[in-house]
């Protein structure tokens, strides 16, 4: 599906991506890396927004730069926020579908269908300026797949989503993969990607550090006596209406490594090796216990640890 051969992109003297080579067959991939690692640049190169300074890229057998026919097969959901405040989601998505060559009626039908799939049908005629961040994210996702592409490329799609929004987004993307379509999901949160995609591309400083299924990355790190992906501990911070009750439930679940209360006992701070399972079950527990979440953060230091290990390997510091 995608062939990257020694792809380098320079912005003047700044390196965007550095000598990346990879071959991706049709399927679902997670592009994981910290902020500023070159994920967006790589996606821009794949979608033909940028031209590689060196190396070559082929997507579905063609170089993507200036290939309009290729753009019909790609759906892109960029990380940037939608800033049209005086346009409704329906009008905006319909407009973008029209640009794929669909007639006005067909574009409207597809826009309505896509917005319905992301749970926006009740609000799609409201102005985008009145939407929450999560609603804007869902609208962005709708415009990416409304024209029925073969490959969906998502850049940080979970930004700003609450637990329920994340759950819904995850469900939509899993359904997309189950339908046999291809997906590239870029994120700086490891467990977000793990929840959806079985394969990773780990990128940092513009370099591809590791790629392949989670098990392969796991084995690779494990053999170098570093912490494997599945054993990396993730920290989650939850400010809610009843921290004690939530803590009891978390302990009973057996999914956590440690738990503590901080910030005048208003915040639960937990550490887990299975953040995906926790995030999947959390909405049900909150609903069951009638607990309101005010704030939830996942600093994801685990990813930093993992990347530090991979960088050391890359530099040859770990034998």
């Amino acid at each position: 599906m995608i062939e990257l051969r020694n792809v380098t992109k320079l912005y003047g003297t700044v390196i965007g991506v550095n000598d990346i080579s990879a071959s991706l067959a049709p399927g679902a991939y997670g592009l994981v890396g910290p902020n500023g690692s070159g994920k967006t640049t790589l996606l821009s190169l794949i979608t033909g927004q940028l031209r590689p300074t060196m190396g070559s890229i082929r997507v579905f057998g063609e170089p993507p730069w200036n290939r309009d026919a290729l753009l019909r097969t790609i759906g892109l959901c960029p990380a940037v926020d939608v800033l049209f405040s005086n346009v409704s989601a329906l009008d905006w998505v319909r407009y973008l579908v029209e640009l794929h060559g669909f007639g006005r009626r067909e574009a409207r039908r597809r826009a309505e269908q896509a917005l319905d799939q992301v749970g926006m049908s009740a609000h799609m005629k409201r102005m985008i300026g009145t939407y929450s961040l999560g609603m804007r994210q869902r609208t962005k996702l709708a415009q990416a797949f409304a024209h029925d592409p073969e490959l969906l490329i998502l850049d940080e799609p979970f930004n700003g989503l609450d637990p329920i929004g994340r759950f819904q987004m995850t469900s939509v993307l899993r359904a997309w993969i189950r339908a046999g379509r291809s997906l590239i999901l870029a994120s700086h949160i490891l467990h977000e990607v793990e929840a959806i995609s079985p394969s990773f591309l780990l990128i940092r400083g513009g370099r591809l550090l590791a790629s392949g299924p989670a098990e392969e990355v796991h084995t690779m790190v494990d053999t170098k006596t570093e912490a494997p992906v599945s054993e990396v501990v993730s920290a989650i911070r939850i400010r809610c209406s009843d921290p004690r009750l939530l803590a009891r439930k978390l302990v009973e679940s057996g999914l956590i490594e440690s738990i503590s209360f901080v910030d005048n006992r208003q915040v639960v701070l937990l550490a887990t090796c299975q953040p995906n399972v926790v995030f999947e079950r959390l909405p049900h527990w909150l609903d069951e216990l009638n607990i309101r979440v005010d704030e939830m953060q996942s600093p994801d230091e685990s990813l930093e640890n993992l990347f530090s290990s991979l960088m050391r390997m890359h530099r040859g510091e770990v034998s």
């Binding site: 979608t47 927004q49 309009d68 753009l71 790609i74 960029p78 940037v80 800033l83 640009l99 060559g101």
Partner: peptide, 17 residues
């Protein structure tokens, strides 16, 4: 500036349109 360029440029003939 409005960060809407990428949505348009990722459409076939989006730039010329």
């Amino acid at each position: 500036e409005g960060k809407t360029w990428v949505f348009l440029a990722s459409r076939p003939r989006g730039r010329v349109s």
